[in-house]
């Protein structure tokens, strides 16, 4: 499991625009870096980040090899109801890591 840092306001008012800030530890190996023996390090990047809010997709991003290691992605959504915000990162090996954060909307 990779380390993540997620910043979502725990409590907010209905209709408020909230910012979701995410950071995940990942080498984001581009696939273009030569190793000591001359072969290329195989590409291993996070290629997709999906955010769902109570099961409904509110944000999706495709990531590419030029994106830094430990990618930081911040975006906004509108707080509609109390529930769960889930963030899923998928890498080139097909592994998906999902982190969920509870949000309270009044």
């Amino acid at each position: 499991m990779a380390r993540t840092l997620i910043n979502i306001p725990k409590q907010t008012r209905r209709g408020e625009v909230i910012e979701i800030k995410t950071l995940i530890a990942h080498p984001m190996e581009t696939g273009f870096r030569p190793l000591a023996n001359g072969s290329l390090a195989p590409r291993d990047i996070i290629n997709r980040l999906v955010c769902t809010y109570n099961g409904e997709e509110v944000f999706r991003a495709d990531l590419f090899p030029a994106i830094t290691a430990n990618p930081y992605v911040a975006f906004t959504t509108v707080a509609t109801e109390s529930g769960e915000i889930a963030l899923s990162w998928t890498d080139d090996r097909g592994q998906t890591q999902t982190e969920t954060v509870a949000i309270k909307v009044e």
Binding site: R3, L5, I6, N7, K21, L23, A25, N70, Y72, A74
Partner: peptide
């Protein structure tokens, strides 16, 4: 700004480790 925000500072990943 990146340094000042603990949710954006990638050094904090290492701190958690």
């Amino acid at each position: 700004e990146m340094q000042a925000d603990d949710a954006a500072n990638p050094g904090m990943l290492s701190v958690l480790d």
